[in-house]
Amino acid sequence: MAARIVKEFTKGLWKEIAPFRFVLGLCSVLAVTTDVKNGLGLGCAVIFVTTMSNVLVSALRKIIPDKVRIAVFIVIIATGVVIVELTMQAYFYSLFLVLGIWIPLIVVNCLVLGRAEAFARKEGVMLSLADGVGMGLGFTISLVVVATIREILGKGTWFGLPVMWEGYPGFEFMIRPVGAFVCLGLLLGIMNVISARGRRKRK
């Protein structure tokens, strides 16, 4: 059992890492990654929502009627999102302003609904918890990776601290929407190369 929990947790971190392996939840990855702080903030919100929805869906899986399950899942997820929204508004107001519309939009992040439908509805509470935390964490890691590349190249800073040499002009392309698409596309390409190499080695 313990081994299985570890397995479900770690698969979200590399083998099935969210926006890279499956194209789920792409919109927020593209939109909030102009700097690392925003990426991390949204990532934490997503961890909370996936974990909560996974645990609740799994705990209620025997009493949710099959026909209306999607609607029930959506209500559960929306509740989680409202909790996050109100908490952020109260304690992290500046982050709340920057993320703006992207916090309510977690509700339509396919990753969250996808985990409820594909995993939590069939598995036990502990496994779903591990899966939810792992998937959320994987999503956060991807956000931070994309944001790191974009912030360092685009503004010459990381987490607001200057990391490039003095007078670095900033490669504005990267913080523009265009840069997000190109950066993510190239990252997916690099992931493909790494996976292909791993497969060849195993043979």
Binding site: V178, F181, V182, L184, I190
Partner: peptide
């Protein structure tokens, strides 16, 4: 190129359109 086939090239194309 093989490593960019599918989703990656689609995203890069979308980026160029965005430009």
């Amino acid at each position: 190129p093989k490593l960019l086939q599918g989703v990656p090239i689609c995203l890069i194309t979308a980026g160029m359109m965005g430009l």
